[in-house]
């Protein structure tokens, strides 16, 4: 009897949380589309989006060419970032691991700096594809470096320290390169490293969707082995899980998604740590099958809201997205560390 009650209560909780995500996300989307330097009413938005009968007005152009791609990119990348945070926390069985804590963004920045300086003579302005590819390669390289240590270090906190050290080394190398570069050569790099969804184009949305949507599907299909993996290496192996293969796939997915984010929007702090944690707290479970969609939706919502704040709070000056996510995310991480003290990790 008690069991049935509890399981009903849990199911109710899950439904409420997902419904809330959906409603909040819808509100955030509408709010995001209508606010900005040009205000557009809800009625107009609906007209433009679904009936298309106000073509070539200012509002039409603002929505279709600027706000909608930016909104979609923010949702996609926000979701991917939060999900890759969840994956890396699963991988290390540590709730304060995050893609950028482990040096992924600094690796990307360093590699991008190297490529920018090397390619300086060839392009007057770096093409997007090269920025994307080089930050992708850079983040994967630093992730691999961290993984190299994983085999040797059993203690997860130590691994986090190693990740942070790696990111310091990468930052130092980047700073060194910047010192010797011309101001004009590294404009691209400086702009990138602030992190922003501005100037998002439909091409960006398409490219990132091609990467993120398949990754999301694969991640969802992996929720079963992920739940077994949470039991620890020996138990999960005794359940028939191929640990090595699982780890490789998990880390590749994390790398692909987080570096996709880094490539298109630059480093965005704290989303990867804070959002999965918020989801865990709301759902009161760490079951992957629930956490995966929750992390993705909540991450998308979080980034859309933060992006809205970034572009409207001090308009016309636009903040970098990390400024906003850090202000919200860092306190959450501190709270998380303090509240988890008892469970020693």
């Amino acid at each position: 009897m008690g069991t049935v009650k509890t399981s009903n209560r849990n199911t109710a909780r899950y439904c409420v949380v997902f419904l809330a995500f959906f409603v909040l996300f819808a509100v955030a989307v509408i709010w995001n589309i209508r606010s900005g330097s040009v205000s557009i009413s809800v009625k107009e938005i609906i007209d433009i989006l679904f009936f298309g009968n106000t073509e070539n007005t200012v509002a039409y152009n603002v929505i279709w060419k600027i706000r909608l791609p930016r909104l979609l990119l923010a949702s996609l990348l926000g979701g991917a970032l939060s999900l890759s945070g969840f994956l890396i926390q699963t991988f290390f069985r540590n709730p304060i691991a995050g893609p950028f804590v482990l040096g992924i963004s600094s690796g990307a920045k360093m590699f991008l700096a190297i490529v920018t300086i090397l390619m300086n003579g060839i392009f007057s302005r770096m093409p997007l594809s090269i920025t994307v590819i080089s930050s992708f390669v850079g983040s994967l390289l630093s992730l691999l470096l961290v993984l190299l240590f994983t085999g040797r270090v059993k203690n997860m906190s130590m691994l986090l320290v190693i990740g942070i050290m790696i990111s310091y080394i990468c930052s130092a190398v980047t700073d060194l390169l910047i010192n010797f570069a011309n101001e004009s050569d590294i404009v691209n790099l400086t702009h990138w490293s602030l992190g922003s969804f501005s100037a998002a184009s439909w091409q960006d949305v398409r490219m990132s969707a091609y990467i993120i949507v398949p990754a999301l599907i694969v991640v969802f299909l992996m929720s079963k082995p992920m739940s077994a993996y949470a039991l620890g290496e020996e138990y999960s192996r005794s359940l028939g899980l191929n640990i090595k293969l699982f780890r490789v796939i998990l880390i590749l997915l994390t790398g692909v998604m987080s570096s996709c984010v880094v490539a298109f929007a630059g480093p965005i702090s704290f989303v990867g740590i804070a959002v999965p944690h918020i989801c865990r707290m709301l759902l009161k479970t760490s079951k992957p099958i629930l956490m995966i969609p929750a992390s993705f939706f909540c991450g998308a919502f979080f980034c859309v809201i933060c992006d809205l704040a970034a572009r409207t709070l001090f308009s016309p000056t636009e903040l970098s997205i990390s400024t906003v996510t850090s202000v919200i995310g860092a306190p959450i991480v501190i709270w998380l560390m303090i509240s988890r003290r008892r469970n020693e990790f």
């Binding site: 620890g232 020996e234 005794s238 359940l239 028939g240 899980l241 191929n242």
Partner: peptide, 21 residues
Amino acid sequence: GKELSVQMSVVLTERVRPDLT
């Protein structure tokens, strides 16, 4: 792995403390 897992289960000394489980 699967064939073995329906034949044999284990109770080990490994620390198991998954979060919110």
